[in-house]
Amino acid sequence: MNTQLQPPIQPGWAWQYSWLDLSLADIIVVLLMVFVFIIALVLPFPGGHDR
C-alpha cells in the first residue's frame, strides 16, 4: 500500500514557448473558440436569404 502523501493537484501537460505557458485545456478552449467563431460566420442564418 502506498502510504505516501499524494499531492492533491496534478498540473498536467502544458505547451511552453518562451513566456507562453498554455495547458492542454487552454489550447482546447482556444481552438474551440476559433472553430465556433468561424462556424458562426460561415453557417447560413435561418431565414436570412429570403428577405
Binding site: F37, I39, A40, L41, L43, F45, G47, G48, R51
Partner: peptide
Amino acid sequence: PIYVNSYVYLFG
C-alpha cells in the same frame, strides 16, 4: 436590420 441575420450576433 437585415445585416444582423448571422449567428455572430448571438454571442452577446
